[in-house]
Simulated scan of single mutants.
Amino acid sequence: MNLKKITRASPVVWSKNNFSPLNAEQISFYKENGFIKLKNIIDQQSINEILNRVMELYNTNGENVVSELQEETIRQIFEIHNEPTLKDFYQHDYVLKAVKQILDDQVYIYQSKINYKKAFTGKSFNFHTDYITWHNVDGMPEPRAINIDICVTEQSFYNGALMVVPKSHLYYVPAENEQPKDQKFNFKDNLQTQDYDTPKTEIFKKLIETYGIEYIALKPGDILLFDPNLIHGSSNNISPYDRIKLMFSYNSVTNKPKKSVRPNYMANHNIEEVF
């Protein structure tokens, strides 16, 4: 498999010679690897506030709540940027400055969610890239977007920490089985079954053989910035500790998808708040 044939054309870092708040070394690392981990960005009091609100939301039910397959355990809660108590975190000064530094444009929340892996029962997320779905199903023109993970509880090897394939963001990897671009398709069920949008096996193997897989261990208050075209996934939570994180996806205002068939809570169709 010749990886040159699927090399990414779009920039990873859109700004030039802007080294604040991320310094030149950090920007270079993100550009080369597709992610960067930043320690102690959110203070412990704020983490406690997040955790309290997450526990309250865990007992709710609605269209934006996804449970584990054939279980009542919650897997994901979408559209959390509409939660007043979580507003300060997706509008966090450092986070927004870093996002705009990389994307070099005004941004808006494209997707937001809590990823919750309950102790012992939290299930895996198959390896995938977000951009496969955002581009093929939603119609996002370019990967001029970024994901921010806010670590709420410790993320370790044992409780299903994120795994990434470094440098995989530099290639456009086609899906083995693409999600249908059809409003009648049950996109919510697919978040449980994960039958679609995994990377083609031959290419995926080649990327792993070339670049390996890295576990992203995080402590509460750490954040992870990663490119939406980066291949990532996570294993089951086999530990007695819950794994909880907030995830905010920011998109450039000039990169709005042309026509998304997914529900608004999965792919924000409305640019109401611009930063």
Rank of each mutant, 00 (worst) to 15 (best):
L3C: 02
L3T: 05
K4C: 14
T7L: 11
V13K: 00
A24W: 06
E32A: 11
G34W: 02
F35Q: 07
L38Q: 08
K39R: 13
N40E: 15
I41F: 05
I47D: 03
N48C: 13
E49P: 13
Y58M: 14
Y58K: 10
N61I: 12
G62F: 08
S67D: 13
R75W: 13
F78G: 02
F78Q: 01
F78P: 08
P84C: 04
L86R: 01
D88W: 06
F89P: 00
Q91I: 10
Y94H: 14
D104I: 01
D105C: 09
V107W: 04
Y110M: 07
K117H: 09
A119V: 13
G122A: 03
H135M: 02
N136H: 08
D138Q: 08
E142Q: 09
A145K: 03
D149L: 06
V152H: 00
F157L: 14
Y158N: 11
G160H: 03
V173K: 01
E178F: 05
Q179R: 11
K181G: 09
N186V: 08
N190H: 10
L191W: 09
Q192F: 08
E202H: 00
E214K: 02
L224D: 01
F226C: 05
D227Q: 03
N229Y: 04
G233R: 02
G233N: 07
S234T: 07
N237M: 01
F248W: 02
N255P: 12
M266W: 05
E272R: 08
V274I: 14
